[in-house]
Design a protein around this nucleic acid. Structure first.
Lengths: 188, 188
DNA sequence: ATTGATATATATCATTTTGATATATTATAA
DNA sequence: TTATAATATATCAAAATGATATATATCAAT
């Protein structure tokens, strides 16, 4: 593991279960872990190329050579070792960027309706997210006895718990803004 | 507002309250909003330069010219307008990157102790964060009647609520991992 | 059968952000 | 007086973002 590229670990983690193309990797990021991680083709394909050079993954020709070119990647032993090292490394960075909170923080000089609207927009996004997470949870509960699934389940309940907290906060926040101690001074 | 540079809005938001140097801006990001946003000198200084060229901020010579060079920035009317536009724009991206959850998600093939340790590390980080946020909250409650403070207060309670949810989840997660339905199969 | 729309698949690029380092001054503590 | 921490600006390589280009495959509707 040469550098600090987080996308490498995501790729190795996904490849540790099955061989995948770059496109597959993007799809799995978008579906399985999008609540707490994002990925782009612009980082995935270059990472795959460099990881092949450094021996963490290797290319596999797709058996049926019919149709469009398709590059399947397979994790090597070095790749597995790198993944395990990272899993045991205690240094982690959880980087959260809530543009919503930025707008709330800086919205104090504007009319209250601006902040209220920003909270509503957030609330709607969270409600959507929560619905999806609940479906994931139901599906996982059907197969919870299988290997790996407890870990998946934990990330899903993390998402659900935080979403529910967000929604409760939205209700509280709107109430405070509407009837709060500063109700008269709508403008600065 | 030419592009998609989020750091511009952070800078404008901070400058809308008082004139600041690039260094001040970094300090205020680290202290006031670090729970939900981060910033680096490597993006702040270049952004200030470009925003000066495009007329969103202007340089102000520090009155007392004694000592080290120091460039104070002041928000212009165009800058204020850009800030207000952004506050009213409903498109937001809340990008969360939890390396902790990544390790939990991909840790299903390892010994349970690895995931347990990763949860503990997270738990400790959150506890520290929570302590700081509670101090912020107490301080804000003393001056809640002042302009802007309801908005600051809301971001702090958001942080506290989510931290407390994280901690509850940690307890649940550890319990499930220790006595879970899959307790026998420590290894894959 | 053909058209159009969507999904699959790789690749690249400009812009933005990160994280680190370089440089220099000022304040403070030992 | 000397070391160290805080202040202050600037720059750079590496990484991530978000968009676009290119091409094939699939599938439904005409």
């Amino acid at each position: 593991m040469a550098k600090d590229r987080k996308i490498d670990l995501v790729i190795l983690g996904l490849l540790s279960h099955e061989d995948l193309t770059g496109y597959d990797i993007k799809k799995q990021i978008d579906s399985g872990i999008s609540f707490f991680w994002k990925g782009n083709f612009g980082s995935i394909y270059p990472a795959l190329n460099e990881m092949e050079k450094s021996g963490l993954v290797k290319k596999k020709q797709d058996k049926k050579s019919s149709g469009r070119e398709k590059i399947l990647y397979h994790i090597t032993n070095d790749g597995k070792k790198a993944l395990q090292e990272w899993l045991r490394e205690e240094r982690v960075s959880n980087d959260l960027k809530y543009e919503t909170l930025l707008k709330i923080y800086f919205g104090g000089g504007e009319d209250r309706s601006v902040t209220l609207r920003n909270i509503e927009v957030f609330e709607n996004q969270v409600k959507e997210e929560l619905q999806i997470l609940k479906i994931y949870k139901e599906n996982l509960e059907k197969v919870i006895e299988e290997k790996d699934h407890i870990n998946y389940y934990l990330t899903v309940t993390f998402g659900i718990d935080t979403c529910e907290t967000y929604l409760k906060w939205c209700v509280k926040a709107k109430k405070l803004l509407r009837s709060g101690s500063d109700g008269s001074k709508n403008k600065r």
